[in-house]
């Protein structure tokens, strides 16, 4: 027992000492979900890349990056950052809105700058800066493109993501955009943003419907599964598949003029980099960066594809 106590005392002393030495640097904590699917993988890549870049530009800044595989773990990560790293700013991409709201609020109340990314907290006004993706916009851009491509209407099937608020906003935006265009959704199932699940769902759609004109896969990972299922079935009634998010393989196919993948819609995982950068600027200069900053979804076409192609990103 007494050994342990001595050790703990020593460790505490050490922490205090390093804290004192490190006083002239400012620490920014970054808390994001782990790379469990393609988009999150890209987001992890961009976060790391932004941190590496900013640490060189701003020697007085220090970053702590942690990835969590569930909301509970993310709360723990944030608490640890506050308790042991004395962070001045927190950049958080909440795993889920509800469970993260109260913990982030208490961080904000302690005077730490808070930047929220992508998913908003369930209570407004907590964060200093909100870098938001535009989910209804993502659906709307996709829907408008579909309507434009199919002026005479047609039958489409839709693959949805994991049942969440994000998914609902996207699908609602999409449905509003195609209203009155003559496009009919003849099947809609959850592919869970997963390649294997979307492959199975698409196979079953193909068994069930003799005529499918186009597919809104709503995500590039799901588009991969959908394409494999169509290819295997040998069917030629499907004119094109529209994914989403901006996975590099899909952007490349758009660039190459692939008729099955004529376009893509961005929901850039690089928004985390934008958020980290804006936070860094906010801490080191007097430039006003607070408020809400929405990153709109953009249609990628063969004409503009090059500027959305990041060959080094894993996504």
């Amino acid at each position: 027992m007494s050994y342990l106590r001595t050790f703990l005392a020593g460790a505490t002393a050490l922490t205090v000492a390093t804290g004192a030495f490190a006083q002239d640097t400012t620490v920014i904590g970054v808390s994001i979900p782990a790379a469990t699917h393609g988009w999150a993988g890209g987001m992890n890549y961009h976060a790391q890349e932004a941190i590496d870049r900013l640490e060189e530009v701003y020697p007085e800044l220090d970053f702590v990056l942690s990835t969590a595989s569930d909301p509970g773990a993310q709360v723990n990560d944030i608490e640890d950052m506050v308790a042991t790293r004395n962070i001045s700013a927190l950049v958080v991409l909440p795993f889920e809105s509800e469970p993260l709201t109260a913990p982030v609020q208490s961080v904000a109340d302690s005077g730490v700058w808070v930047t929220v990314v992508d998913r908003g907290l369930s209570q407004e006004g907590i964060e200093d800066l909100y870098v938001a993706g535009d989910n209804p916009g993502f659906g709307r851009v996709s829907g408008e493109y579909m309507a434009e491509m199919m002026p005479d209407g047609g039958n489409i099937v839709v693959l949805r993501g994991i049942p969440t608020a994000i998914d609902n906003e996207r699908v609602e935006g999409f449905q509003e955009a195609i209203e009155g265009s003559g496009i009919e959704i003849i099947g809609m199932e959850h592919g869970n943003w997963n390649r294997d699940d979307s492959f199975n769902v698409m196979q079953d759609f193909l068994s069930r419907h003799d005529q499918i004109d186009a597919v809104w896969a709503s995500d590039d990972d799901m588009a991969v599964g959908v394409l494999a299922a169509i290819e295997a079935s040998g069917r030629d009634d499907i004119q094109f598949v529209l994914g989403g998010a901006g996975m590099k393989e899909m952007v490349q196919r758009v660039m190459d003029g692939d008729t099955m993948i004529p376009a893509d819609v961005t929901y850039p995982p690089s928004m985390i980099a934008t958020a980290i950068e804006m936070t860094a600027v906010g801490l080191t200069s007097s430039a006003p960066v607070s408020g809400t900053f929405t990153i709109g979804s953009v249609l990628i076409t063969p004409e503009n594809a090059e500027q959305y192609y990041f060959p080094d990103s894993p996504f």
Binding site: A35, T36, H37, G41, W193, R195, D196, F199, V224, A228
Partner: peptide, 12 residues
């Protein structure tokens, strides 16, 4: 050979 890919979400 089905999808020619593997990721963290394979086999969940």
């Amino acid at each position: 050979p089905r999808l020619g890919s593997a990721s963290a979400s394979t086999g969940v």
